[in-house]
């Protein structure tokens, strides 16, 4: 199974990026072998619709599950329609995120969070 983690760097020691649409990149991990590859996120500098573009990138890469911090309403509409499972994790290294997912410790996201979640977090908005 191929799972994607939104990350702020390009190896398993990188931290999870809680923003899905505007994360630095995605790390695609094979859940059986733990082999990983980097999937660039072309939406990081999008003027708008970053969540939509990032979700499309994940679908095109045939990802079956995504681990991130928050999924906004537009990206959620796409991931839900595609049947991609979405999990929430705190900010820690991608390797720890993956281990937590494997142990079944991550919360399943089953509804959209607020739009512009990354901006909200940075500004300290609720």
């Amino acid at each position: 199974m191929k799972i994607a983690v939104s990350a702020s760097g390009k190896n398993l020691d990188s931290m999870l990026d809680p923003r899905m649409g505007r994360c630095e990149c995605f790390l695609l991990i094979d859940s059986d072998t733990m082999d990983f590859q980097v999937l660039e996120n072309g939406a990081v500098n999008a003027s708008g619709g970053a969540g939509i573009q990032a979700a499309q990138t994940l679908l095109d890469a045939q990802v079956e599950a995504v681990i991130t911090g928050n999924v906004g309403p537009n990206a959620w509409e796409i991931l839900e329609a595609a049947g991609v499972k979405v999990y929430r994790s705190n900010i820690t290294t991608v390797e720890k995120v993956f281990q937590a997912w494997k142990a079944g410790e991550l919360e399943v996201i089953n509804q959209a969070g607020p739009a512009h979640g990354g901006l909200r977090a940075r500004q300290g908005w609720k």
């Binding site: 708008g48 619709g49 970053a50 939509i52 499309q56 679908l59 537009n74 509409e77 796409i78 329609a81």
Partner: peptide, 23 residues
């Protein structure tokens, strides 16, 4: 259409195009 849209207002999901009118 999804590739051409500069505003990311379209997505292709399971063989179906979804539109995002507000974008």
């Amino acid at each position: 259409c999804v590739k051409a849209c500069q505003y990311n207002a379209l997505a292709l999901v399971k063989g179906k195009v979804i539109t995002f009118p507000k974008i």
